[in-house]
Simulated scan of single mutants.
Amino acid sequence: MSALMRTSLLTSWQGWLSLALSLAALATLPLLDPDAVARFAPMALFAIFALSIAGAVVSFLPLPPLFLAAAIFVFCHLSTSILISGLSGNEGKAATAFFLMIAANWLLAWRCVSLLSEIRTRSRFADGLLGLAIPAIFGAWLLILWEALTRGFGVPFILMPPPSSIGLRIAASLSILWADVQQTIFKAVLAGYILGCGAGFVVAILADRFAFLRAGLMPIGNLMSALPIIGVAPVMVMWFGFDWQSKAAVVTIMTFFPMLVNTVAGLSASGTMERDLMRSYASDYRQTLMKLRLPAAMPFIFNALKINSTLALIGAIVAEFFGTPIVGMGFRISTEIGRMNVDMVWAEIAVAALAGSLFYGVVALAERATTFWHPSNRGG
């Protein structure tokens, strides 16, 4: 046996454990309880075990990591898809062997992700694809386990609907969800985010320029950042009305002080030697600010922008609980949970999570383009 083969056999502990679980599932058949409405067809049963065992065996072979990962990905996901499809009409009827096979395929997916994370390429495009594939597989398996556990154990729909039901609700309610996104994100979140971050940045520059403002504002900023949103939101609704303006006001308050604190800290990040060099060039405050201190503060500023990208969405949704027109993500969540339409509530949560992730990703891309010189973006 070659050294490469021995290394593959030793490092693929997920494959060994997956193989053991598959054999244990074979020993504890059937996959569903005897009183299940429909049973797995013999060919489907054979495919489930053949694909899973093949994935485990392939993981031992001394093949290129990308080829191994691709083969394991196909085997474990085909096996899992057949397993999950067998639960249709048999919710709560899954037997021990079913969960053993889910665990076996999950271990194979783990092995697939481990192999992908070990691949090193010389292409930024290939690195980007790998950077997307790894979290995509990881996230997909969170949904698969959620689906298998809720349907396999027969968890009541009102407590935790499976992802498939949430997906169907999203597909059937696209017009409603789009109207809520327009009201909450395109109006309240964006307006409040721009106002809050912009005001925080301007005030931070003023506080840096005038010492008395810095000494007076920072303690107040720390105090205001601790204000509970559920206390501020009703007041903003009374001041600015029930439409999106009151929610934008809440978002402005929530995003102002993180930007203020981070920008003030960032303006102090430049080193003493750099400042002395600027003074030796007879640079005034404005020149030092624009050419040295603001560029050095950019990582801090973008840190605040990324924090605020999630805070803004949370603030707008919570503010809508206290008064809004009959549209908006917070309004929809509060009304649909009262009607026990839990799948619609989770659909709104999923859309909000997706929108927040996209918002954060846009800010992160802007940070990479702006602070390309920083060690975190140079791999240093």
Score class of each variant (00 low, 15 high):
3 A>G: 06
4 L>V: 07
8 S>L: 10
9 L>W: 11
9 L>D: 01
10 L>N: 10
12 S>G: 06
19 L>V: 02
21 L>W: 00
32 L>P: 01
32 L>W: 06
39 R>Q: 15
41 A>L: 09
53 I>D: 03
53 I>Y: 04
57 V>P: 00
61 L>A: 13
71 A>V: 15
71 A>P: 10
74 V>M: 11
74 V>P: 06
74 V>Y: 02
85 S>Q: 09
89 G>H: 01
103 A>C: 02
104 A>G: 01
115 L>E: 15
116 L>C: 07
121 T>D: 04
128 G>W: 08
131 G>E: 04
133 A>I: 08
134 I>K: 10
135 P>I: 01
143 L>R: 00
148 A>Y: 03
154 G>P: 00
154 G>V: 03
154 G>H: 09
154 G>F: 12
160 M>G: 02
164 S>D: 15
165 S>G: 09
171 A>F: 12
172 A>M: 09
173 S>K: 05
180 D>G: 02
184 T>M: 01
188 A>G: 12
188 A>M: 14
191 A>I: 14
192 G>V: 08
192 G>S: 07
193 Y>W: 10
193 Y>I: 01
197 C>N: 15
206 L>P: 02
206 L>V: 09
212 F>W: 14
217 L>P: 00
219 P>C: 04
220 I>E: 10
223 L>C: 05
228 P>Y: 07
230 I>G: 09
234 P>A: 00
239 W>L: 14
239 W>D: 03
240 F>H: 02
242 F>L: 15
242 F>K: 06
244 W>F: 11
245 Q>I: 13
246 S>R: 01
249 A>T: 08
250 V>K: 01
252 T>I: 05
253 I>E: 10
255 T>A: 11
260 L>I: 03
268 S>H: 13
270 S>I: 01
271 G>T: 05
271 G>W: 01
271 G>D: 12
273 M>R: 15
280 S>D: 01
284 D>P: 06
286 R>H: 12
287 Q>W: 11
288 T>Y: 02
289 L>F: 14
290 M>W: 15
292 L>F: 10
300 F>N: 10
301 I>D: 06
304 A>T: 03
309 S>F: 05
313 L>C: 05
319 A>I: 10
333 I>K: 05
338 G>Q: 14
341 N>R: 09
343 D>L: 03
343 D>W: 00
344 M>E: 08
347 A>G: 08
347 A>Q: 04
349 I>G: 04
351 V>K: 08
352 A>W: 05
352 A>V: 08
356 G>F: 07
356 G>S: 10
361 G>N: 15
365 L>D: 09
368 R>E: 08
368 R>T: 04
372 F>R: 13
380 G>M: 14
